[in-house]
Design a protein around this nucleic acid. Structure first.
Lengths: 223, 223
DNA sequence: GCATAATGTGACTACTTGGTCACAAAGATA
DNA sequence: TATCTTTGTGACCAAGTAGTCACATTATGC
């Protein structure tokens, strides 16, 4: 948790500092992100950072909290109950994710890089913890669909949940690997991750959904 | 490429050095792996390493080359033509992979960690290069199956290839995330990654195949 | 046995980092 | 104006790294 010193800061200065660190952590891993570098850019003393935060991890957790809080504001409106079909729900999450990205480029870049970021040995514990949460969340979704009789029940929910999780992350990874998006470049130009790429994003999502339907849905497998 | 000094070394000494570095790179990323640490363990001078290799990257590439060469010896015997079904081929690759792991634990651990390893910023170029190769290889497999009329043709081969690649890596990742395997611990005890875990490995592979069949095969989608 | 070539060595360089702390500056209170 | 509290500062510390190089040791060839 940031110290009160940080919270009492003028909004503009707090934002300036937050953004600078978001930018740094959006392109480097936790261990490679350099506080020394950022304070140089900001033109403030390194000691100030330690008036605001306990340590590097405290700062990092603050950034995670801020960004996820904003993203949740975009996705919390989307409820499974509003859709008869899991995949329509899945698709809508990407639609709202796109809006989050367009309106909060820096935070979106930060979250995009979070997985890479967490690979640093110093934050292995945090990584494992978050990974467990995500995996569990996806398994819960699968369990619900199985109970609704919409997903097949001849495969362990753990395995289905994990694949579903991988499908979710694969969209972004594929677009990055094929060069359709270029986070490195777009963050440099202060652009959202998916700037002008909505069509290809949703098209890819649809292709993944098209394949996943067959893999997960019940009717395809036990009609 | 290692210098001749290294190749002229006595077999036993060369193996000792290679193994020590494999062990280090099997549990750390490229940037975190410490030559200083390894030479301490080996009881040799740091200068010696630089008599053997140009630099850290040269050493790393040598390790990659050695391990993949050994693994290829296990998998090259498995040919697509020997199977009427892609998934039987896919399954057999895992069977042979298991044998490679059982008989070459250290090399297997190194390759298991390679993806993490390559995430280091210093080797980003190498990572991108290898990723492109792997993705292309998977897409080629998909193209072949489409041509054979076995895989569906209503999804871009790039996307199918990427998902197939992700399915391949997910097996290991899931087993690790769920604690079924524990590379960290098994390398410490000089055990293979999948020691005594063949049943759960192949069971998981079968589950993934079961789901993937539906997602990729033509008959399920355009009969 | 001697000279030459090939190996082995470890103190050293140049560099980077997160984090500290004695002090300076600025704000607030009275 | 004088005092007290909050905020800002940057030289400094301890720890770590890859890579170098002048020198010591060992092997080889004659």
């Amino acid at each position: 948790m940031p110290k009160s010193t940080f919270l009492n800061l003028e909004d503009s200065k707090r934002k300036l500092i937050t953004d600078a660190f978001l930018r740094e952590f959006a392109i480097k891993s936790f261990d490679d992100a350099s506080i020394t570098e950022v304070v140089k850019q900001l033109g403030i003393a390194k000691g100030s950072v330690y008036q605001y935060f306990d340590d590097k991890l405290d700062l990092f957790m603050y950034l995670i909290g801020e960004c996820t809080a904003i993203k949740i504001r975009y996705t919390e409106a989307v409820k499974r109950e509003q859709f008869s079909d899991y995949w329509a729900y899945f698709r809508e999450l990407f639609e709202h994710g796109y809006r989050f990205d367009a309106e909060n480029p820096l935070q979106s870049h930060f979250l995009h890089n979070l997985t890479q970021n967490l690979k640093s040995p110093s934050v292995k514990q945090l990584y494992d913890q978050l990974l467990q949460q995500v995996i569990t969340a996806f398994e819960q979704m699968v369990i619900r669909e199985v109970e609704l009789g919409l997903f097949r029940n001849d495969i362990p929910t753990k395995t289905m949940g994990f694949l579903l999780y991988k499908v979710g992350t694969s969209v972004q990874e594929q677009l990055e690997a094929t060069g359709a998006i270029n986070p490195r470049e777009s963050i440099h130009n202060n652009l959202p991750v998916y700037e002008g790429k909505k069509a290809i994003l949703m098209e890819t999502v649809d292709h993944y959904i098209n394949m996943s339907r067959k893999a997960f849905d019940k009717e395809s497998n036990q009609s």
